Simulated scan of single mutants.
Amino acid sequence: MLLTQVLLSSGRSIRLDEVKMSTTYGGMLEGYPNRRSNDWSVEHLRGAAARQYPSIPVHLVEPVRERPEDGHQGRMGPEERLPPVRCVGLFSSYPVGRGTADFSQLVVAWYQPGPELSGLAESVPGLAGLPWEELAQDCEY
């Protein structure tokens, strides 16, 4: 079953084989989202992706950060929000090199506006421009 497919701006088509989703602020019991807590969240997502797939390269698509005009202004600085869903996905495509590889793979971590997987290239800024040829790893079955 195909979860979704993304057409990169390079013309390469990549296929999402596995995905793990969670809410961005699900564990936040006190305070408000700010630059410091969001920096931690982004680095935690990158680290979780690397631990989940230790033998495959990981790339983080930098999330869009928004500062609501009517946001909280407290001792932690101004409120800053990330998209509400964070994801770690295993993508595959045809090989990058010309050797004996059967396919290429890359783990991608990103934030998105909702749980839908269709239209990822449009809903996740920076995903379509993913430099697959530079980042992905060729693999054999």
Rank of each mutant, 00 (worst) to 15 (best):
L16G: 13
P113M: 13
G71K: 00
G27V: 02
D17H: 05
E43Y: 04
I56D: 04
G114K: 00
E140G: 07
G77A: 00
S10Q: 01
K20V: 15
P68D: 01
L82W: 10
Y141K: 01
L130A: 11
L135D: 11
C139N: 03
Y94L: 02
R12W: 08
L7Y: 03
S13I: 15
G26C: 06
S13K: 08
R98M: 10
E116K: 08
A50H: 01
V107D: 04
G89W: 05
P125Q: 14
E18V: 12
S55N: 15
A109D: 04
G114C: 09
F91R: 05
G74C: 02
P83T: 14
M76H: 02
G26T: 09
V88E: 00
D39R: 15
G26A: 11
V124M: 04
G126T: 14
P63Q: 02
Y32D: 03
L60F: 00
E66L: 12
P113I: 11
W132T: 13
G31E: 03
L82K: 10
G126N: 13
R15Y: 07
P54D: 09
V6K: 03
K20I: 14
L120C: 11
E116P: 10
V19R: 03
F91L: 07
N34A: 04
A136T: 10
V19K: 00
E140V: 14
S41L: 15
R46Y: 13
H59P: 07
S37R: 13
M21H: 04
V124P: 11
Y111G: 11
E140R: 01
V107T: 08
L90A: 05
H44F: 12
V88T: 10
D138N: 10
V108H: 02
R75A: 00
E43T: 14
A50S: 14
V61R: 01
G129D: 15
A109I: 13
L16R: 11
H59S: 08
L82D: 14
P83G: 12
D17C: 07
G114D: 15
R86S: 02
V58D: 01
M76E: 02
G74M: 03
R36K: 07
R98V: 14
